[in-house]
């Protein structure tokens, strides 16, 4: 497991400044929940960690290494594709819309990375996949295609798929936002188990209950900056800033 450091991260989409200098440290085995109104930049921040988005300036390190960049003189330069891919494979990501590979069964989705990237033998990968799917409670759904699974089941397969690469950090981008309310619990349960197992997790979420119960730190973002951060029970029950107060009054 590794810690994640954000150092003065800026991100522009054209003229629009989405991240305005983010500084944040996520320690090993910590669960950090990013909350905030939509458009506040929390998803973008998450996507910068594994270089799905390129930062405009600033650096993000995972386990002391930058993911998408190398030092080039007195500047940072985007690393080669092969190098980025190698560093990326240590970071698991779970998406709001699951993004399971539609032409593969649940088991094949989980075997895909280990067989093709980690060069694991088919037999080992299959064993590993079965174990992971059992862990997320889908032992009986292994041979189903994503279209045959409910949203909650798909998201649990997606978590298993991310875990199959043996990541040091897991990123969750609103993992329960696309789910029917009654399916949210099963996904959160899997995430809680992961947190208990000591996984370092950064979670963009609107589930304040989850943030309170599982989060070690909650970070409130608005308009591209971190407004407030700290112990979830403190921040969520006793917010110090006006913007945090007005946001929380709307969602809780």
């Amino acid at each position: 497991m590794s810690d994640v450091k954000f150092l003065n991260v800026h991100k522009n989409f054209g003229q629009l400044e989405v991240l305005k200098g983010i500084n944040l440290t996520v320690h090993k085995q910590q669960v950090v929940c990013l909350i905030g109104p939509s458009g506040s930049g929390k998803s973008t921040l998450l996507r910068c960690v594994n270089h799905l988005e390129m930062t405009t300036s600033g650096a993000i390190t995972v386990g002391g290494r930058m993911i998408g960049y190398d030092v080039h003189g007195d500047q940072l330069q985007e690393a080669s594709e092969a190098e980025i891919n190698k560093r990326r494979s240590k970071i698991g990501m779970v998406f709001q819309s699951f993004n399971l590979f539609g032409h593969m069964t649940a088991k094949e989705n989980v075997m895909f990375g280990p067989t093709k990237l980690l060069k694991m033998s088919k037999k080992d990968a299959e064993e590993h996949a079965c174990e992971l799917l059992r862990k997320v409670g889908l032992a009986d759904r292994m041979n189903n295609y994503p279209s045959q699974l409910s949203g909650g089941q798909q998201q649990r397969v997606a978590i298993a798929r991310a875990l199959s690469m043996k990541p040091e950090v897991m990123l969750f981008d609103e993992p329960t936002s696309a789910l029917d309310p009654e399916l949210v619990g099963e996904v959160l349960d899997v995430m809680k188990q992961l947190a208990r197992d000591g996984m370092t997790m950064i979670v963009v979420t609107h589930e304040m209950g989850f943030a309170r119960e599982v989060g070690d730190v909650v970070v409130f973002m608005d308009d591209g900056v971190i407004v407030e951060q700290g112990d979830p029970r403190e921040v969520l029950s006793n917010p110090q800033h006006e913007r945090t107060k007005s946001f929380l009054s709307k969602v809780i």
């Binding site: 594994n50 799905l52 819309s97 093709k116 990237l117 798929r161």
Partner: peptide, 27 residues
């Protein structure tokens, strides 16, 4: 093929070419 399919593959560390071959083209 939805962009999310490529994103999922890229986030696992697959190259653009592998993503095209194993994820995008089959679908």
């Amino acid at each position: 093929v939805p962009a999310g399919q490529s994103e999922a593959s890229r986030s696992m560390g697959f190259s653009q070419l592998h993503t095209l071959r194993f994820v995008v083209i089959p679908q």
